[in-house]
Amino acid sequence: MDPLRQRSRRRFLTGIGAALGAAGLAGCDRLSQSDTVASVLGSAEHLNAAVAKVVTGRRAMAQEYAEADLSPTFRSNGTANPNNPAYQTLAASGFADYKLVVDGLVAKPRSFTLAELHALPSRTQITRHDCVEGWSAVGKWQGARLSALLDLVEPKRNARYVVFHCADPMNDDGTDPYYESIGMDDAYHVQTILAYRLDDQTLPIPNGAPIRLRVERQLGYKHAKYVMRLELVASYAGIGDGNGGYWEDQGYQWYAGI
Protein backbone atom coordinates (compact mmCIF):
# COMPACT_ATOMS: atom_id res chain seq x y z
CA MET A 1 0.00 0.00 0.00
CA ASP A 2 1.31 3.45 -0.73
CA PRO A 3 2.61 5.24 2.37
CA LEU A 4 0.50 8.33 1.77
CA ARG A 5 -2.74 6.39 1.90
CA GLN A 6 -1.53 4.49 4.90
CA ARG A 7 -0.75 7.71 6.73
CA SER A 8 -4.11 9.24 5.98
CA ARG A 9 -5.85 6.08 7.07
CA ARG A 10 -3.90 6.13 10.30
CA ARG A 11 -4.87 9.75 10.82
CA PHE A 12 -8.47 8.88 10.09
CA LEU A 13 -8.44 6.00 12.60
CA THR A 14 -6.79 8.14 15.29
CA GLY A 15 -9.38 10.84 14.65
CA ILE A 16 -12.22 8.36 14.98
CA GLY A 17 -10.70 6.99 18.18
CA ALA A 18 -10.35 10.44 19.73
CA ALA A 19 -13.85 11.48 18.66
CA LEU A 20 -15.37 8.28 20.03
CA GLY A 21 -13.50 8.75 23.30
CA ALA A 22 -14.69 12.33 23.74
CA ALA A 23 -18.24 11.50 22.65
CA GLY A 24 -18.22 8.52 25.00
CA LEU A 25 -17.32 10.60 28.04
CA ALA A 26 -19.69 13.44 27.22
CA GLY A 27 -22.28 10.77 26.46
CA CYS A 28 -21.89 9.22 29.90
CA ASP A 29 -22.59 12.59 31.50
CA ARG A 30 -25.64 13.16 29.33
CA LEU A 31 -26.85 9.62 29.98
CA SER A 32 -26.41 10.14 33.73
CA GLN A 33 -28.94 12.97 33.58
CA SER A 34 -31.60 10.77 32.02
CA ASP A 35 -34.16 9.16 34.31
CA THR A 36 -34.50 6.17 31.98
CA VAL A 37 -30.76 5.51 31.96
CA ALA A 38 -30.59 5.97 35.72
CA SER A 39 -33.31 3.38 36.16
CA VAL A 40 -31.64 0.94 33.74
CA LEU A 41 -28.30 1.32 35.55
CA GLY A 42 -30.15 1.11 38.86
CA SER A 43 -31.67 -2.24 37.91
CA ALA A 44 -28.40 -3.83 39.05
CA GLU A 45 -29.46 -2.96 42.63
CA HIS A 46 -32.26 -5.56 42.58
CA LEU A 47 -29.86 -8.18 41.29
CA ASN A 48 -27.34 -7.25 44.01
CA ALA A 49 -30.00 -7.55 46.71
CA ALA A 50 -31.42 -10.83 45.43
CA VAL A 51 -28.05 -12.49 44.94
CA ALA A 52 -26.74 -11.34 48.33
CA LYS A 53 -29.82 -12.78 50.04
CA VAL A 54 -29.51 -16.13 48.25
CA VAL A 55 -25.75 -16.39 48.71
CA THR A 56 -25.51 -15.33 52.36
CA GLY A 57 -28.93 -16.23 53.75
CA ARG A 58 -31.18 -13.91 55.70
CA ARG A 59 -29.72 -14.72 59.11
CA ALA A 60 -26.03 -14.31 58.18
CA MET A 61 -24.14 -12.37 60.83
CA ALA A 62 -22.00 -9.32 60.22
CA GLN A 63 -18.45 -9.68 61.45
CA GLU A 64 -17.83 -8.74 65.04
CA TYR A 65 -14.53 -7.52 66.41
CA ALA A 66 -12.51 -7.36 69.60
CA GLU A 67 -12.02 -4.35 71.89
CA ALA A 68 -8.51 -3.97 70.45
CA ASP A 69 -10.00 -3.21 67.03
CA LEU A 70 -12.06 -0.21 68.25
CA SER A 71 -11.44 3.09 66.51
CA PRO A 72 -9.99 5.60 69.02
CA THR A 73 -12.88 7.95 68.31
CA PHE A 74 -15.92 6.95 66.32
CA ARG A 75 -16.30 9.39 63.45
CA SER A 76 -19.47 11.47 63.32
CA ASN A 77 -20.71 11.95 59.78
CA GLY A 78 -23.61 13.94 58.37
CA THR A 79 -25.57 15.81 61.03
CA ALA A 80 -23.54 16.44 64.21
CA ASN A 81 -26.23 18.33 66.10
CA PRO A 82 -29.77 18.57 64.72
CA ASN A 83 -30.97 22.07 63.88
CA ASN A 84 -34.36 21.38 65.43
CA PRO A 85 -35.78 23.31 68.44
CA ALA A 86 -37.89 20.39 69.67
CA TYR A 87 -34.82 18.13 69.63
CA GLN A 88 -32.72 20.77 71.37
CA THR A 89 -35.33 21.04 74.14
CA LEU A 90 -35.17 17.26 74.66
CA ALA A 91 -31.37 17.33 74.62
CA ALA A 92 -31.28 20.13 77.21
CA SER A 93 -32.89 17.82 79.79
CA GLY A 94 -30.75 14.82 78.88
CA PHE A 95 -33.60 13.31 76.84
CA ALA A 96 -35.64 12.73 80.02
CA ASP A 97 -38.83 13.56 78.08
CA TYR A 98 -37.89 11.58 74.98
CA LYS A 99 -40.47 9.14 73.66
CA LEU A 100 -40.02 6.82 70.73
CA VAL A 101 -43.33 6.58 68.91
CA VAL A 102 -44.15 3.29 67.17
CA ASP A 103 -47.16 3.30 64.86
CA GLY A 104 -48.40 2.42 61.40
CA LEU A 105 -49.30 -1.17 60.59
CA VAL A 106 -49.09 -2.53 64.13
CA ALA A 107 -51.75 -4.08 66.33
CA LYS A 108 -50.59 -2.21 69.45
CA PRO A 109 -49.21 1.23 68.62
CA ARG A 110 -47.46 2.82 71.58
CA SER A 111 -44.47 4.85 72.61
CA PHE A 112 -41.34 3.98 74.58
CA THR A 113 -39.44 6.12 77.04
CA LEU A 114 -35.66 5.73 77.21
CA ALA A 115 -36.12 3.71 80.43
CA GLU A 116 -38.53 1.38 78.63
CA LEU A 117 -36.08 0.94 75.76
CA HIS A 118 -33.32 0.14 78.24
CA ALA A 119 -35.59 -2.48 79.81
CA LEU A 120 -35.98 -4.36 76.50
CA PRO A 121 -33.68 -7.32 75.74
CA SER A 122 -30.43 -5.74 74.57
CA ARG A 123 -27.39 -6.70 72.59
CA THR A 124 -23.81 -5.42 72.72
CA GLN A 125 -21.70 -5.78 69.59
CA ILE A 126 -18.40 -4.49 68.24
CA THR A 127 -18.97 -3.98 64.55
CA ARG A 128 -17.54 -2.18 61.57
CA HIS A 129 -19.39 0.80 60.17
CA ASP A 130 -18.90 1.15 56.41
CA CYS A 131 -19.74 4.50 54.87
CA VAL A 132 -20.89 4.65 51.26
CA GLU A 133 -17.98 7.04 50.70
CA GLY A 134 -15.54 4.22 51.37
CA TRP A 135 -14.26 4.64 54.92
CA SER A 136 -14.82 2.30 57.85
CA ALA A 137 -14.75 2.73 61.62
CA VAL A 138 -15.12 0.15 64.37
CA GLY A 139 -17.41 0.88 67.34
CA LYS A 140 -18.98 -0.92 70.28
CA TRP A 141 -22.73 -0.54 70.34
CA GLN A 142 -25.32 -1.45 72.92
CA GLY A 143 -29.04 -1.15 72.31
CA ALA A 144 -32.49 -2.66 72.43
CA ARG A 145 -33.12 -5.43 69.96
CA LEU A 146 -35.56 -4.18 67.36
CA SER A 147 -37.13 -7.64 67.16
CA ALA A 148 -38.03 -7.45 70.88
CA LEU A 149 -39.69 -4.09 70.36
CA LEU A 150 -41.60 -5.35 67.33
CA ASP A 151 -42.86 -8.34 69.33
CA LEU A 152 -44.48 -5.89 71.75
CA VAL A 153 -46.25 -3.80 69.10
CA GLU A 154 -47.23 -6.80 66.92
CA PRO A 155 -46.77 -5.79 63.28
CA LYS A 156 -49.69 -6.57 61.00
CA ARG A 157 -49.33 -9.14 58.25
CA ASN A 158 -49.11 -6.51 55.53
CA ALA A 159 -46.27 -4.57 57.19
CA ARG A 160 -43.22 -4.88 54.92
CA TYR A 161 -40.94 -2.07 56.02
CA VAL A 162 -39.95 -0.25 59.17
CA VAL A 163 -39.53 3.47 58.49
CA PHE A 164 -37.29 5.48 60.83
CA HIS A 165 -38.33 9.12 61.18
CA CYS A 166 -35.51 11.26 62.54
CA ALA A 167 -35.07 14.59 64.31
CA ASP A 168 -32.38 15.99 62.03
CA PRO A 169 -33.56 18.30 59.26
CA MET A 170 -31.44 18.03 56.13
CA ASN A 171 -32.20 21.58 54.94
CA ASP A 172 -30.77 24.66 56.59
CA ASP A 173 -34.29 26.04 56.98
CA GLY A 174 -35.18 23.13 59.26
CA THR A 175 -37.22 21.14 56.73
CA ASP A 176 -36.68 17.77 55.04
CA PRO A 177 -36.14 15.51 58.06
CA TYR A 178 -33.84 12.51 57.64
CA TYR A 179 -35.58 9.20 57.30
CA GLU A 180 -34.68 5.65 56.38
CA SER A 181 -36.40 2.31 55.90
CA ILE A 182 -35.43 -1.33 56.18
CA GLY A 183 -37.17 -4.60 55.26
CA MET A 184 -38.48 -7.14 57.76
CA ASP A 185 -35.48 -9.50 57.33
CA ASP A 186 -33.19 -6.78 58.59
CA ALA A 187 -35.71 -5.55 61.19
CA TYR A 188 -35.80 -8.97 62.88
CA HIS A 189 -32.08 -9.67 62.46
CA VAL A 190 -30.22 -10.41 65.70
CA GLN A 191 -27.72 -7.58 65.20
CA THR A 192 -30.34 -4.94 64.39
CA ILE A 193 -30.57 -2.76 67.48
CA LEU A 194 -31.77 0.64 68.59
CA ALA A 195 -28.46 1.74 70.05
CA TYR A 196 -28.26 3.94 73.15
CA ARG A 197 -24.58 3.36 74.02
CA LEU A 198 -21.40 3.75 71.99
CA ASP A 199 -18.00 2.55 73.27
CA ASP A 200 -19.42 2.07 76.82
CA GLN A 201 -20.68 5.68 77.01
CA THR A 202 -24.15 7.11 76.62
CA LEU A 203 -24.60 7.65 72.88
CA PRO A 204 -23.24 11.17 72.16
CA ILE A 205 -25.23 13.70 70.16
CA PRO A 206 -22.82 13.70 67.15
CA ASN A 207 -23.42 9.94 66.81
CA GLY A 208 -27.22 10.12 67.02
CA ALA A 209 -28.38 10.49 70.65
CA PRO A 210 -30.56 9.34 72.19
CA ILE A 211 -31.30 6.46 69.77
CA ARG A 212 -29.72 5.42 66.52
CA LEU A 213 -30.37 2.38 64.38
CA ARG A 214 -27.66 -0.23 63.81
CA VAL A 215 -28.38 -2.41 60.80
CA GLU A 216 -24.99 -4.00 60.47
CA ARG A 217 -25.19 -5.62 57.04
CA GLN A 218 -25.79 -2.33 55.23
CA LEU A 219 -23.87 0.87 54.57
CA GLY A 220 -23.77 3.81 56.97
CA TYR A 221 -26.60 5.88 55.57
CA LYS A 222 -29.12 3.17 56.55
CA HIS A 223 -28.12 3.59 60.22
CA ALA A 224 -30.56 6.41 61.00
CA LYS A 225 -29.53 8.72 63.85
CA TYR A 226 -31.80 10.78 66.17
CA VAL A 227 -34.66 8.28 65.69
CA MET A 228 -37.97 9.71 66.93
CA ARG A 229 -40.59 7.47 65.42
CA LEU A 230 -40.90 4.03 63.85
CA GLU A 231 -43.63 3.59 61.31
CA LEU A 232 -44.51 0.20 59.89
CA VAL A 233 -45.73 0.42 56.32
CA ALA A 234 -46.65 -1.77 53.36
CA SER A 235 -44.91 0.65 50.99
CA TYR A 236 -42.65 3.66 51.40
CA ALA A 237 -43.88 5.24 48.16
CA GLY A 238 -45.82 7.94 50.03
CA ILE A 239 -42.96 9.04 52.28
CA GLY A 240 -40.49 11.78 51.27
CA ASP A 241 -39.88 11.50 47.54
CA GLY A 242 -40.91 7.86 47.72
CA ASN A 243 -37.56 6.08 47.50
CA GLY A 244 -37.38 4.83 51.06
CA GLY A 245 -34.88 7.25 52.57
CA TYR A 246 -33.29 10.68 52.46
CA TRP A 247 -30.23 9.53 50.52
CA GLU A 248 -32.31 7.19 48.39
CA ASP A 249 -34.27 10.29 47.34
CA GLN A 250 -30.91 11.77 46.21
CA GLY A 251 -30.28 8.76 43.95
CA TYR A 252 -28.56 6.32 46.32
CA GLN A 253 -29.60 2.67 46.37
CA TRP A 254 -32.27 1.51 48.82
CA TYR A 255 -30.40 -1.77 49.12
CA ALA A 256 -27.17 -0.62 50.72
CA GLY A 257 -25.58 -4.03 51.16
CA ILE A 258 -22.77 -3.19 48.74
Partner: peptide, 23 residues
Protein backbone atom coordinates in the same frame (compact mmCIF):
# COMPACT_ATOMS: atom_id res chain seq x y z
CA UNK B 1 -12.88 14.74 34.95
CA UNK B 2 -11.53 13.13 31.77
CA UNK B 3 -10.77 9.92 33.71
CA UNK B 4 -14.07 9.91 35.57
CA UNK B 5 -17.62 8.71 34.94
CA UNK B 6 -19.62 10.85 35.53
CA UNK B 7 -16.99 13.56 34.87
CA UNK B 8 -17.54 15.31 38.17
CA UNK B 9 -17.96 13.91 41.64
CA UNK B 10 -21.34 12.21 41.83
CA UNK B 11 -21.13 9.19 44.09
CA UNK B 12 -24.69 7.90 43.67
CA UNK B 13 -24.50 7.85 39.87
CA UNK B 14 -20.93 6.54 39.78
CA UNK B 15 -22.07 3.60 41.93
CA UNK B 16 -24.97 2.95 39.55
CA UNK B 17 -22.57 2.82 36.57
CA UNK B 18 -20.08 0.69 38.50
CA UNK B 19 -22.55 -1.99 39.61
CA UNK B 20 -24.33 -2.15 36.26
CA UNK B 21 -21.11 -2.78 34.36
CA UNK B 22 -19.89 -5.08 37.13
CA UNK B 23 -22.65 -7.52 36.18
Amino acid sequence: AWLSVPSHQWLAMARAWHFFFAW
